[in-house]
Structures are given as structure tokens and as C-alpha cells.
Design a protein around this nucleic acid. Structure first.
Lengths: 252, 252
DNA sequence: TCTTGCGCTTGACGCGACGTCAACCTCTAC
DNA sequence: GTAGAGGTTGACGTCGCGTCAAGCGCAAGA
């Protein structure tokens, strides 16, 4: 006994368009066609459809389903592989949700925090726009909380370390050092290490800053005069950028 | 000072193709074009790009980003709405993962369980194929574990309840009752309630079986002679189906 | 001056799983 | 004869780009 396309569709809870699609991609040809192209499905076809729908409901792509069913691929193994993908996707989503949540609180409280916050020396707020807009207000807010938690002494020590670094950069640039030389790369390593010490820096959870973050920052040093000034102007910033980009390509 | 498309692309860590795409959909027009259509971006455009990328990295669709940026839509509110979507998606994924996990253990252990399992009376294994193939081996395995956990007395009581129901169905069908009448619908309600008592029934977590599950089952009662026999043949099964489908449409 | 090559342009197809017309056919019932 | 139900085969749209393909403008080398 065979069923029409509508019968099968209702039985399985899918649309007839779906069945035509499955026919078209070769996933489920009707067991018989006749009389103007009408599709007829026998019990075997219905059972195949049921297996298809089971796997589809588990989120498996149709092409994978086809190979599993046609090539008698080990169903359990296919499911395990599929499970891995689902878990990775779930983890990605969880990270994204956490990021949005942090961004949201940062955006909501951003106004107040920024108003309170007028630092001297390395101006932590002057670069707010760039930091928040490229790397998310969460990076800024996290770094900001950390900065305020440092205390007076901590802030001074941190700034001193930065000043040392900057002086070293400027000196090396003036001496015409090759950015890819050992000295340039050692400076870059110190710089990256310093960056990674700031919580909220993208990638710092993995122990070192994200490559693109470093590269983007390095480009910004050149592109933005306020940053470039920290390194003695455009030439110094260019040197810093070249050294950092080379380092990032090698080591990150 | 303006930048070329490649400069901006490197600065932001995206491809030039992406920038062209953003121009094409009106999300980020270059601030100036000239000389053979070359795109030039000023600082304002770069800042806009940075905001776009922040929101994009949070998983927001480009059209939504466009409205947020253009219509000065409240950014916090947009983020909250987006967060809801992400959470719903996460929950869906979690359920799917759990389902795949259950299916996997069921598939791996299925052979053994099925071999042990030869019940009398209402044959719980005879319909295994239909149950597992349409609703997943997990539904079968869950129901199976529940069935074995019932104990001898529980199983007898459950079967008695089913027998009562079946007799009532057959009687009503013989008397020519209208499936949509109060009597037919009351029977359908009892049937659905009985279904929902079986753990593993799709939708029973929400307190009542899924509409499509009931409809699919009802169709199967007619389509499969082994099921139809429970209701006195095709005519009885048709009556049961019509009553169940009407009930499902109304109440599920 | 011609060629080569780089960087850019526009235009178009492809992906995944169908939803949604549109135009046409076949059979049955009135 | 005609209307209606239920089928058929295209073909386009979705989303965010990747990836050719063909062509243009400009600068350096032969």
C-alpha cells in the first residue's frame, strides 16, 4: 500500500514542499511515480523518512544524514561527532552571552563610571572611545574596575613600568634599530606581556592577548596622533607597530 | 585624513569584501568616493565601523545593527532584546544536546535492552520501530525504563486502564458516535491524558503531549494494521483518529 | 611606448533548508 | 462544461559574506 505526498506529510508532520525538496536533493526519492509525476511512498520510504526526521531533529545537516543512511555509516559514531559540534556551539553561545551581559552592564553604568573617572599620567579615559568601540565596553569596564582597584601605589607602579617601556621604545627608534631584530622583538615581548596584565584584554584569559587585538592596537598607534605622541611621534609609533606586528605574527 | 579600503580593513581586522558588502547594504557608506570609484573612509566612518563590529561580535544581525545605529535606538534596550534571543537559542541547544545524549546511549545500549524485552498483553516492543524512528530512540528508551520500573502490579494496572479505554473507543465507534461530539472528545481527552502519563512522550515535560505527536500517532493508528487492530479494525481506528485530531487542534 | 603588475572596481554565483508565489496539469463532482 | 482540490515543475528570497571573473587606473621597468 502506498501513500500520497500529503498523507506522508501529515503522518510525519512536515510540509509536502519538504518532501519534494528531499526528493530533489536525492535524500528521499519516492518509491514510485506515475500519472503526471505524482509521488507515491511505500512503507520503506516512510521508515526512511522517519529516520531522516529523527536525525534532523537532532540538528544534523541533511547531507550528513544522507551519508549516514546510505553508506551504513556507524550511527553512534556520527552522533558522537555531531554531539561535539553541538557542545562547541553551546560553549560559543555561552561566551557570547556572558560578553553581552558584561557589555550591557557596562553600557548601562558607563555614564556614571566615566564621569567619576579622570586620571592623570597615562590617561586611561582619553582612549576610551577606541577601546570601547573596537573591543567592547566590557573590555573597558573590566580594565577600569581593575585600574581603580589597584590603589594609589599600584597605579603609580604600573605607570612607572609603562614609562620605562615607552622610553625604551623611543630610544630604540631613535637609534634606528631594526623592528625585527632581537632588541625590537624583546621590546615587543615586554609590551605584549604588559598588555596581558590588564584584565579585560581580549585573549588574556588564554594567557596571552589575541593576535588581532595586538595588531589592531599597533595600527592604531600609528593612525592616531594621541597614541603616536606616546612614542615620540609618527616615526616612533611606526617602529613600535612594525615590531609588534612582526612579534604577533611569530608568537601569537 | 582619510584611509583606503585596505587600510581600514587591516585596522579593523575584517576583509575588504566585508567593507564593500557593508557599503552595498547601506550599513557603512564610505565618506568619500572618487577616482574610479575608490572608497575613502574618514575617522567618523572608522568609528562607525568599530561600533558595527562590536555589535556584530555580539551576534546581532546586520539589519538590527543598522537600525540601532541610524535611528539612535536605545542601545541598552537593543542589547537586552538580543540577550533574550541568545538565551532562548542557548536553551534550545541545551535541550538538543540532552536529546542527542539520550539518543546516543539508547542507540548504544539498544540492542541489549531490546533483546531482554518481550512483554505480553499490550506489546510494548511490537511498536518499537514506529516509536523509535519517529520520536527518537530516547522516547522509546525512557518509556521502556519507566515500564520496567513499574513492577508487575503497576504494569497490570496500566494495561487495565488501556483496555478500558480501548473498549470505550470500540463501543463508541460501533454506536456511530460523532468524533467531534462531547463523548468523542471526552474519550480523546482520556486518551491524551493516558499518553501523557508515559514519560518520554514528546511534550509531556510541558504537562501535555505535543500536538504533532498526537496527530502523528492518530494517523499511524489508521495507517498501520497492527495498531488498527487495537480499535476493532480500520473503521474504529479512523474514528479514534478523527476524534484525536479534532481534540488536538482544539486543546493542544 | 608598451608591458607588466598591483590594487581597486562591479557583477554574479554559492552556501542550507526550505517558504512562497506562479503557471500549469489531472481528476472528480456537480 | 466548469469549478475545485491536489498535484506538478520552475524560480526567487533568506543571511553574511567567500570566491571567482572581467575590467579599469596608475606606476615602474624594458
Amino acid at each position: 500500500m502506498t501513500r500520497s505526498i500529503q498523507d506522508v506529510a501529515r503522518l510525519a508532520g512536515v510540509s509536502s514542499r519538504t518532501l519534494r525538496h528531499y526528493d530533489q536533493i536525492g535524500l528521499l526519492p519516492p518509491s514510485r511515480t506515475g500519472n503526471g509525476g505524482l509521488r507515491h511512498y511505500d512503507d520503506g520510504a516512510v521508515r526512511r523518512l522517519q529516520r531522516i526526521l529523527l536525525l534532523r531533529d537532532l540538528g544534523m545537516p541533511l547531507t550528513d544524514i544522507g551519508t549516514v543512511l546510505d553508506e551504513q555509516t556507524d550511527e553512534a559514531r556520527a552522533l558522537r561527532g555531531h554531539l561535539d559540534q553541538l557542545r562547541a556551539e553551546r560553549d560559543r553561545l555561552a561566551r557570547q552571552i556572558a560578553s553581552v551581559e558584561r557589555t550591557l552592564t557596562a553600557v548601562e553604568q558607563g555614564g556614571r563610571i566615566m564621569a567619576e573617572q579622570m586620571l592623570d599620567g597615562f590617561d586611561h579615559t582619553q582612549h576610551k572611545d577606541e577601546v570601547t568601540q573596537r573591543w567592547g565596553a566590557d573590555a573597558y569596564a573590566t580594565g577600569d574596575a581593575w585600574w581603580r582597584g589597584l590603589g594609589e601605589d599600584g597605579r603609580k607602579a604600573w605607570q612607572a613600568r609603562l614609562q620605562e617601556l615607552n622610553d625604551a621604545w623611543i630610544g630604540a627608534a631613535r637609534r634606528g634599530v631594526d623592528p625585527t631584530s632581537d632588541e625590537g622583538q624583546a621590546l615587543a615581548a615586554r609590551h605584549v606581556e604588559w598588555l596581558g596584565a590588564v584584565p579585560g584584554t581580549p585573549g588574556s584569559e588564554q594567557g596571552r592577548p589575541a593576535k588581532e587585538y595586538v595588531v589592531g592596537l599597533a595600527e592604531m598607534y600609528v593612525a592616531d596622533d594621541r597614541f603616536a605622541a606616546n612614542y615620540g611621534g609618527t616615526d616612533g609609533a611606526t617602529f613600535v607597530r612594525d615590531a609588534l606586528v612582526a612579534y604577533a605574527e611569530r608568537a601569537l
